[in-house]
Structures are given as structure tokens and as C-alpha cells.
Design a protein around this nucleic acid. Structure first.
Length: 271
DNA sequence: ATGGGCACCTGGCTGC
DNA sequence: TGCAGCCAGGTGCCCA
């Protein structure tokens, strides 16, 4: 999926089309997502106006008059804004039909995405409450990352992919941020120095912010709300570049598997 | 409390 | 052409 930049790109893409609109119909064609879509959801959201399109970590939040829709894109999900009469294709799992005549359509081949609803404060939802601060907010600062890395035996790459400690960083941007911070992914988090932690905060912030500017990264499935791919793939330094020369020093980029996920790094630039 | 591994899915690509 | 095997933007849960 969709890491933070892809979710944020989706949020920005749908926002002007959904905010202020009323939900005419929620049509669920395939409820078997990461969590089974509650059968009562269509009746609950029908007729409610969308007040805001927000994001928390990799969750999209549609604030309604009486509650909040929580959407997650999983690994292969995408949301698109389409004319109401667009024929459904394979893996189109639900449609949010708006009073504008447009449809917000969710497609997700692997079905790791989710569609949920909460009547209360979304921040208190069990899936959102334990999440770390937003990486582009002031709360995610040098002191924070320094503190949460102390005493941790996990590798720094796995640590920055742990949503209870750092949010929004997935497999692509974890490798990219560590390259920019010049830290090897397999280093134990507790061996990261205070200076390096500060560098890593800056690297995470800049890689995410720049990827948002580029509309995210498209490897295969991901498209923004308008159907366009993201172009950050052209700016990747290490991800998916095993054997190819480092863009900084020409040393071949290495690949190894860490916690069942592919990791890429430059053995020369990263220590 | 922490860390490791598995599970949930489909589809695209590689190599025999 | 067919098929097995591997790989893929995530993350909650179970167990040691």
C-alpha cells in the first residue's frame, strides 16, 4: 500500500469531491476485506453529509454528521472519484454514491484494506488510539525519536516501521529515509546515536513530504483519486535498486530480507 | 514489555 | 503453454 504519501495524495484527491456532499448510497459488493464490513453500515451512513476528509497515519477519515468512516487501503487498495454510471470492474469492492452523482469507488485486489465506522471520537478508536504522533507534526521531533529508540534491540528499520513508534513509514520509505540519514537498516535501534536520531527525523520528514509533492510512489496497483500514478518512483535512491549503482557513490545497492520484508541500502554511504 | 513469525489475499513475473 | 515458486506500498495477533 500506500504508505503515508499515497494515502495523503488520495485524501487530497477526494477532498474537493466529497466534502459538503451527502451520501446517497453505500453499496458494498464484497464485504470480505481485512475486517468484514458491517452489514448495518449502508443504513448508518446513508443520508449523512461528509463534513471533512482527514487522515491519521495511513487511515483515511471521512467525518460525517453523526460519526466517522475509517478507510484503510491495505497493500493494494485505491480510491477513485468516478462518474456515477461507470461500470464496475474486478476488485471494485464498494461504492460511496454521492448526491453530486459522483461515486467514490474502492478497488483492492488483495483485500487487505478496510472500511469501518465509529460513532465516537475516531482518535479513541482501538486501531487509532495506540498510534505514534504524525511524522509531519511538531510532536515527532529529535527528542521523541531519541527516546523511543533507547534500549530497543530491534533493528532501526523495523523500529521506524512500527506504527506504535513511528507512523506513516512503510517498506519503501523506510529504506529511503535510512539512506538519506546514512544509517544502515540492520543497526539495532539502541545503537543509533543522538545525532543520527536527529538526522533520521529530518530524513523521514523530508522523504515523506517530497513523496507527497510527487503524488506518491506507484509500483503496480496504486493510483490517486483521479487515476493518475505517483511519480516519486523516479526519485528513489535505494528501494528496488539492488545491484544498481548508488546514485551518490556508484557502489552497487544491496538487498536483504529483514523481518520478511525486502530492505535496500548502500554499503558505502550507510554506516 | 519486547520481538519474531504468521496470517490474511490476489496477481504478476520468472524459470523450468 | 502450463505450472510451481517467489514477490509485492500493511498490520493485527499469537506466542515465547
Amino acid at each position: 500500500m500506500p504508505e503515508l504519501p499515497e494515502v495523503e495524495t488520495t485524501r487530497r484527491g477526494i477532498e474537493p469531491h466529497v466534502v459538503g456532499r451527502r451520501i446517497r448510497v453505500l453499496a458494498v459488493h464484497e464485504p470480505r476485506l481485512r475486517w468484514r464490513v458491517d452489514a448495518s453500515l449502508p443504513a448508518v451512513v446513508a443520508g449523512q453529509k461528509v463534513l471533512a476528509a482527514g487522515r491519521r497515519a495511513k487511515y483515511l477519515l471521512l467525518a460525517l454528521e453523526r460519526g466517522t468512516i475509517l478507510l484503510h487501503l491495505g497493500m493494494s487498495g485505491s480510491l477513485r472519484v468516478l462518474p456515477g454510471e461507470t461500470p464496475r470492474g474486478k476488485h471494485d469492492h464498494f461504492d460511496l454514491v454521492l448526491d453530486s452523482g459522483q461515486t467514490l469507488r474502492f478497488n483492492d485486489p488483495r483485500r487487505f484494506g478496510s472500511l469501518m465506522y465509529t460513532a465516537g471520537d475516531p482518535a479513541a478508536h482501538p486501531l487509532l488510539a495506540p498510534l505514534a504522533p504524525e511524522p509531519l507534526s511538531a510532536a515527532f521531533d529529535d527528542a521523541y525519536l531519541w527516546r523511543v529508540t533507547r534500549g530497543r534491540r530491534v533493528t532501526v528499520k523495523q523500529l521506524i516501521m512500527n506504527a506504535r513508534l513511528v507512523v506513516g513509514v512503510g517498506n519503501i520509505y523506510a529504506s529511503e529515509a535510512l539512506f538519506r540519514a546514512r544509517i544502515r537498516p540492520e543497526r539495532a535501534a539502541r545503537r543509533v546515536t543522538e545525532r543520527e536520531a536527529a538526522r533520521l527525523v529530518r530524513a523521514i520528514r523530508s522523504v515523506l513530504a517530497n513523496a507527497v509533492k510527487a503524488g506518491g510512489t506507484t509500483l503496480r496497483d496504486y493510483v490517486g483519486a483521479d487515476g493518475a500514478p505517483g511519480y516519486f518512483g523516479q526519485k528513489l535512491y535505494v528501494y528496488g535498486r539492488a545491484g544498481q549503482p548508488c546514485r551518490a557513490c556508484r557502489t552497487p545497492i544491496r538487498r536483504r530480507v529483514q523481518g520478511q520484508r525486502a530492505t535496500y541500502w548502500c554499503p558505502q554511504c550507510q554506516k
